[in-house]
Simulated assay, not measured.
Amino acid sequence: MNFAPHINSDTVRIFVTSTTSDAINVNPAIRSYLIEGLIDRVGPAAVAHAPLELACERVQRLRPTLVIAVGSLVPDAAGLGALRRAVDAVGGQLAFWLTEDPYEFDYAFKAEILADIIFSNDGWAAHHYRHGSVHHLPLAASPTRHLRPIRPDLPRDIAVFFCGVAYPNRIALLRQADELLSRHPVEILGCDWPADLRCASNRRLTADEMADHAAAAWLTLNIGRDLDIANRRFALPQATPGPRTFEVALSGSTQLFFTTGLEICDVFEPEQEILLIDSPRDIARAIERVQDEPAAILAIAERAQRRALQDHTYACRAERILDLCGLRTCATPVGLGDLFAGSHMEPHGSVRV
């Protein structure tokens, strides 16, 4: 479910930037998705944004109530101290939404020093901050980018889909499943896959291509990341499912989620909205279900898509940010037809100044 804004934009001015320069920002799309979600909640007149390189001047000119910086804290030359001073000069709040926990948690001290309020993408990492206002805020999905209609009348050409970097844990699982997957029409894509994996190919996909592939697949593998950048202090394990979980749900594919923790059960209901696996044998059983009960597999995808639209869009996350920062919204629902009509549109309506 999506929401149309019903708030007086004169009372709220929100400015969105990144925690790193765009030149080294590995995931700038999250910022654009958050902007889209904020516009959905408070309207375009209340939201402005700019890259970090331009943020201080824009903050001083626009005098926003709330500044949200999104991303990673690893780069040392980011200029976040200057952003803090600019926000102080206009009497605003500075929030960080950190999107790389727990993999970069050794740099959490930067947020602890600079931010008024911290949002962590990971539930377990959120418990380890030394700060008076820390909240767990998972990443999400964008209806305008990831949503695809589920069409039971159209054939699905892919039995199993996955796309991602070949981290060691992913290679290990797919090596075990290689013989099985090679017997079926699969698309295992991404980068750095070793040549001995017959089921995998080194090919990158855009966000649109990812959504299209998932929409064409009966099953999509969800295998978490296993690569720490700076996580030596506490060696925190990942607790919260990554954004791909919500993106694939919007795209309309039933997910095979490789279980590493129980938090997945808080965001999707096992067997009803997602299938949990821990071995190639579970993948084989899921493929058999596709062959024996295709309608049941589609029903799981449909329920997951409804759940994602209701609970796991960036508009939902934006509403929580605004609520926790003392900027409540009032909204009314829009029909699903409106969402599908705009499912391939770029984020629009914000003020890039």
Rank of each mutant, 00 (worst) to 15 (best):
T254K: 04
I117Y: 03
R145K: 15
G79E: 04
G132N: 15
G337R: 10
G37I: 08
G261F: 04
H135P: 06
A77N: 11
L236S: 14
I283L: 08
L236H: 11
A126P: 03
D178I: 07
V67A: 04
V353C: 11
D278A: 13
G71T: 09
W218A: 02
A115D: 01
R204A: 05
D22Q: 00
A78S: 10
W124R: 15
N27F: 10
A48R: 10
A195T: 13
L73K: 05
R232G: 11
I24V: 09
F268D: 05
C265F: 00
I30F: 07
V165D: 13
E319A: 09
R183H: 15
T245S: 15
E187P: 12
R320H: 12
L322I: 06
A341P: 08
P152T: 13
S18C: 01
D101T: 11
D311V: 09
I321V: 09
Q238E: 08
R85A: 10
R31M: 11
R84C: 05
P102K: 07
F268G: 01
T313D: 08
E293D: 15
D40P: 09
H184V: 12
D212A: 07
P149E: 01
P155C: 02
I321G: 06
L327V: 03
D212E: 12
R148V: 09
R13G: 01
H184T: 08
C191D: 14
S32Q: 15
S72K: 03
I117K: 02
P270A: 02
A126C: 12
N8A: 14
A284G: 06
Y33E: 01
E302A: 15
A23R: 13
T329C: 00
L256V: 04
H312N: 09
W97L: 04
A89S: 15
N2T: 09
V70W: 05
D122F: 00
A172L: 12
D106T: 07
T99S: 00
V87L: 04
L250K: 10
P280F: 06
E104T: 11
A141Y: 07
F340M: 11
G37W: 00
S343N: 00
Y167L: 06
G91S: 14
I7L: 14
D196P: 11
A296P: 06
E271T: 11
A69D: 02
R145E: 03
L327R: 04
A29K: 15
T144G: 05
F234E: 11
G91N: 07
R244W: 06
T260E: 08
R156H: 07
A296Q: 07
F161Q: 07
R281W: 07
